[in-house]
């Protein structure tokens, strides 16, 4: 069997990438590893589609359609060096942006994640869940305080969180940059103005009481799940990401019901995602609620706490060079 060449797109300080690389070097069963790290500059590019369905896509002379590809972090950078600024801007718009967008969604038989997976729309995901009978907390996105008041009285306890990305930054004059994050927070009556008013679109969900939380790593149909006992600690009760480093939440292996795994697998097929991490709530009544899917989320803590060797699984998948996953590939393109 021909040895694979491998492309890993990531950031230089990502320790999960480091561990996967260690596994790859340990197996040694590859031709070459190309690292596209941080803002990876595309200095030359070539794409050829010809008859007999032949295609050849090259970045910096590396034939990317022939390599195993793992997208983890980072992005492509491609710039024109034309000296006229406004010409350069227009050129970027008409030629470079479409090219980058093609590369960011580039799909072939042996890959784990793509850059565009970063932008899976959380609202779309919730809609798919409704379709697939995956339980989600009652959800309201609204601009109107009256509607919010009704939602609160119907659901008793509600939370707010970001619609998409919980982090954003803002330039304050030239000298400062402010970083904002919106962790999950409870919304109570006193947070909502009494007289009717409107605000920018905001996301609300019914607060679901937890027996515990589940984080489940998914890769090509396989689930590796972990339960997080976040309810024993006041700090992590609402959002386990308010980590308590001194006394970490208990994290142990968990097995999701097959029925739920099947539905989540369907969800992944619909989203054309072959890798990601689910956040799920398990209620005291024994029900599972889907919260969200993180397409390129952290898995190292899960791998370590449960001794799952997820990095090894990823390395093996990369080295398989697509032979076995052609079925999945066609399933994704159905």
């Amino acid at each position: 069997m021909k040895k694979a060449s491998i492309i890993i797109q990531s950031q230089s300080f990502d320790s999960s990438t480091d561990t996967v690389l260690m596994w790859l070097y340990y197996y040694g069963n590859f031709n070459k590893i190309h690292l596209f790290f941080n803002d990876y500059a595309i200095e030359n590019f070539s794409l050829l589609f010809s008859d007999q369905k032949k295609k050849a896509v090259k970045i910096n002379n590396i034939p990317i359609n022939k390599c195993s590809f793992w997208y983890r972090r980072g992005e492509y950078k491609i710039t024109s060096n034309h000296r006229n600024k406004s010409f350069r801007k227009n050129l970027e718009k008409v030629a470079l942006v479409p090219l980058i967008s093609y590369l960011n969604s580039f799909f072939h038989f042996n890959l784990i994640n793509r850059f565009n997976d970063n932008f899976i729309n959380k609202v779309t995901v919730l809609e798919h869940c409704l379709d697939l009978n995956i339980k989600i907390p009652n959800t309201l996105i609204t601009t109107n305080s009256d509607e919010l008041n009704v939602f609160l009285s119907e659901n008793k306890m509600i939370i707010t969180k970001s619609i998409q990305n919980p982090f954003f930054s803002l330039n304050i004059n030239q000298n400062y940059k402010a970083y904002f994050s919106t962790p999950t927070q409870l919304v109570t009556l006193k947070d909502i103005p009494k007289s009717s008013c409107s605000f920018s679109p905001s996301f609300f969900q019914k607060y679901i009481p937890k027996q515990f939380e589940i984080r489940s790593f998914y890769l090509n149909g396989i689930f590796k799940s972990m339960v997080i006992f976040s309810q024993q600690n006041e700090k992590t009760k609402i959002d386990y990401r308010n980590y308590d480093h001194k006394n970490p939440n208990r994290c142990v292996p968990y097995i999701l019901p097959k029925k739920l795994e099947k539905k989540l697998h369907q969800l992944m097929l619909r989203l054309k995602l072959n890798c990601g991490s689910f956040d799920i709530i398990y209620t005291p009544e024994g029900e599972y609620y889907f919260l969200e899917i993180n397409p390129v989320g952290q898995f190292q803590w899960l791998s370590r706490n449960c001794n799952y060797s997820i990095e090894k699984t990823i390395a093996k998948t990369i080295l398989k060079n697509g032979k076995k996953d052609k079925n999945l590939y066609s399933a994704l393109y159905k």
């Binding site: 561990t19 260690m22 070097y25 339960v227 142990v252 292996p253 968990y254 024994g286 001794n307 799952y308």
Partner: peptide, 17 residues
């Protein structure tokens, strides 16, 4: 009913070196 959801820790030692 919940007992079967909590598997034992896998005790294999795997280290890539």
């Amino acid at each position: 009913k919940e007992l079967k959801r909590f598997p034992q820790l896998q005790l294999k030692f795997e280290y890539p070196a």
